[in-house]
Amino acid sequence: MKRHIHREELFHYCDVHSNDGRTRFRGKCAEDPDVDNSACHHDDDCAKILGHAVGSGKLTGKCVNFNETVKTCEIQGWCPVELDSTKKVPMIGAENFTIFIKNSIRFPLFNFSKGNMLPSITTDYIRRCVFDAKADLFCPIFRLGNIIAEAGESLSALTRKGGVLGIRIEWKCNLDWSADNCVPRYTFHRMDKVSQTNNVSQGYNFRYARFYRNSSGTEYRTLLKAYGIRIDITVYGQTLSPSLQESSNGSSFIRLCHHHYRRAPIARVSSGFVTNTTGELQLLEFYHALPPISGT
Rank of each mutant, 00 (worst) to 15 (best):
Cys139Lys: 11
Ile105His: 02
Arg168Phe: 05
Pro140Ile: 10
Glu82Trp: 01
Asp132Glu: 05
Pro108Thr: 10
Pro108Gln: 11
Leu59Lys: 14
Phe110Gln: 13
Val130Ile: 15
Asn174Tyr: 00
Ser120Met: 09
Thr86Gln: 12
Pro90Val: 03
Cys73Leu: 13
Lys102Met: 10
Ala133Thr: 08
Asn146Ser: 15
Gly145His: 09
Thr86Met: 11
Gly162Lys: 08
Trp78Ile: 01
Asp136Phe: 02
Arg128Met: 01
Lys134Asn: 13
Gln76Ile: 05
Gly115Cys: 11
Ser85Asp: 11
Lys102Leu: 10
Glu68Gln: 12
Phe112Leu: 07
Gly152Asp: 07
Ser156Pro: 02
Glu68Arg: 08
Asn111Gly: 06
Ile75Glu: 04
Ser120Cys: 07
Ala133Arg: 14
Val130Ser: 14
Asp132Lys: 03
Lys134His: 10
Thr69Gly: 00
Val81Asn: 02
Ser156His: 12
Lys172Gln: 09
Met117Gly: 01
Gly93Met: 00
Lys161Thr: 12
Cys129Met: 03
Thr123Glu: 14
Leu118Ser: 11
Phe110Cys: 00
Leu155Asn: 03
Leu137His: 04
Thr122Trp: 06
Leu109Ser: 13
Trp177Gln: 15
Ser178Gln: 06
Pro80Trp: 00
Phe97Val: 03
Asn181Ile: 07
Glu74Ser: 09
Pro140Ala: 08
Pro140Met: 06
Pro90Thr: 03
Thr86Cys: 12
Phe107Pro: 04
Asn65Arg: 09
Thr60Arg: 10
Glu82Arg: 07
Asn146Trp: 04
Pro90Cys: 05
Val64Asp: 00
Ala149Ser: 14
Ile167Phe: 03
Thr69Lys: 14
Asn96Gly: 04
Thr69Trp: 12
Lys114Pro: 07
Asp132Asn: 15
Gln76Gly: 06
Gly163Leu: 05
Arg168Tyr: 06
Leu175Asn: 09
Thr86Leu: 08
Val183Pro: 02
Ile126His: 01
Arg185Ala: 12
Ala94Trp: 00
Ala135Trp: 00
Trp177Pro: 00
Ser120Ala: 14
Ser120Ile: 12
Tyr186His: 13
Leu158Ala: 04
Lys71Ile: 07
Lys87Gly: 03
Glu95Trp: 01
Asp124Asn: 13
Phe131Pro: 01
Lys87Gln: 14
Trp177Arg: 14
Cys129Ser: 03
Leu175Lys: 11
Asn65Cys: 02
Ala157Phe: 06
Ile99Lys: 04
Thr72Asp: 04
Glu153His: 04
Lys58Arg: 14
Gly77Pro: 08
Leu165Trp: 06
Asp132Gly: 08
Ser104Leu: 08
Cys139Trp: 12
Lys88Ala: 03
Lys172Met: 06
Thr86Asp: 02
Ile121Asn: 13
Ile99Val: 11
Glu170Cys: 00
Arg185Pro: 00
Thr60Phe: 09
Ser85Tyr: 02
Arg160Met: 13
Asn111Cys: 05
Cys73Met: 14
Glu170Ser: 11
Ser178Met: 06
Ser104Trp: 10
Cys129Asn: 03
Asp132Ala: 05
Glu153Thr: 04
Thr123Met: 13
Leu165Gln: 08
Gly61Thr: 08
Leu83Phe: 05
Tyr125Ile: 09
Trp171Pro: 04
Glu153Ile: 02
Ile101Tyr: 07
Glu68Val: 03
Gly145Leu: 08
Asp176Gly: 02
Phe100Arg: 07
